[in-house]
């Protein structure tokens, strides 16, 4: 509720001043919506089963196979459609996980302060400073292939971002009058945290989300490209790119380039959308 009014105002202002921004945001939204629709409608739209061979191997794109077939004779187009499910599922699940953990830890850390805060901040800062993909690789490789393991390894990378934002918000909210009043009245910590602080820090989540999600798409693709993501034969863009790459030089370009372009498209879509949302929600950032 609190969001709607400023949102409408922001949109009006945008429409006057920044048509370009809006256009870019909309483009992003359309791309993302389209890929979400792809994921949702995959079973309806896909002409073939993405798991089994349906024709000769390595057929070039044709009317029967819009994007050709891969080296097991599977329909690349169908795999792309189903692949969007894998990417979306993994990326959203891992973002939710890091959001949940980051928020919780950030809330505790910011609220209680003191030694707990110091230690937690140090841990989070260490992870934050470390190259994300390398950390994800190390964790993913150690945990072994599998959807849930991939989700965990990606989420570790983004927990610190949520943590930092939430913690910062908590610190500023904590000193506000109504929180101090509640504390003075002897409300238990849990109630204060969940009832008074949490609702006020939640609006910052979409901002962090929008900043992270494109990056998470690339991390997911990177992991599966390196063979550390979801195990075969699940359709997955990063994995299919790698799988197709070994036939690329022999001239079979369709197996790898289509999944590759989809990764870029989705990342661009999320970036455009994220940037737009970011400006809508917190225009003061610019």
């Amino acid at each position: 509720m609190r969001l709607i009014d400023p949102l409408a105002r922001a949109i009006r202002r945008y429409w006057r001043v920044k048509r370009v921004d809006l256009a870019l945001t909309l483009t992003g939204a359309i791309i993302v919506a389209w890929i979400i629709a792809m994921a949702a409608l995959a079973p309806v739209v896909a002409p073939y089963d993405p798991y089994v061979s349906v024709d000769d191997v390595l057929l070039p794109p044709s009317r029967e196979h819009l994007m050709g077939t891969d080296n097991l004779g599977r329909d690349v187009f169908s795999r792309i459609l189903y692949g969007s499910r894998t990417v979306m599922a993994v990326v959203l699940a891992s973002t939710m996980l890091s959001m949940g953990v980051g928020t919780l830890v950030g809330l505790v850390s910011g609220y209680f302060g003191g030694l707990v805060d110091r230690v937690l901040s140090l841990v989070m800062d260490s992870i934050y400073a470390f190259p994300g993909l390398i950390l994800a690789i190390a964790v993913a490789a150690m945990l072994g292939p599998g959807v849930s393991n991939t989700v965990v390894s990606i989420s570790i990378v983004y927990i610190p971002t949520y943590f930092r934002m939430i913690r910062g918000q908590v610190l500023s909210v904590k000193s506000q009058l109504y929180v101090e009043a509640a504390t003075a009245l002897g409300a238990p910590h849990k109630v204060i945290m969940l009832k008074y602080i949490l609702p006020n820090v939640i609006p910052v989540l979409p901002v962090v989300f929008s900043m992270n999600v494109a990056d998470a798409v690339l991390t997911e693709a990177g992991l599966s490209f390196l063979g550390l993501g979801v195990p075969a034969p699940t359709p997955d863009w990063g994995f299919d790119l790698r799988n197709g790459q070994r036939n690329l030089l022999a001239g079979y370009w369709w197996g790898s380039t289509f999944p590759g372009f989809m990764i870029v498209l989705l990342a661009v879509g999320f970036s455009l959308l994220g940037e737009g949302l970011n400006e809508l929600i917190s225009p003061e950032r610019r």
Binding site: Y51, V52, S53, N71, L72, P145, G227, P231, A232, P233, F239, R242, N243, R246
Partner: peptide, 17 residues
């Protein structure tokens, strides 16, 4: 996935099929 080359995932998929 790696020891027997990048084709291994496809071998498994072919056997499954």
């Amino acid at each position: 996935p790696a020891h027997y080359g990048t084709t291994e995932a496809d071998v498994a998929a072919a056997i499954k099929e």
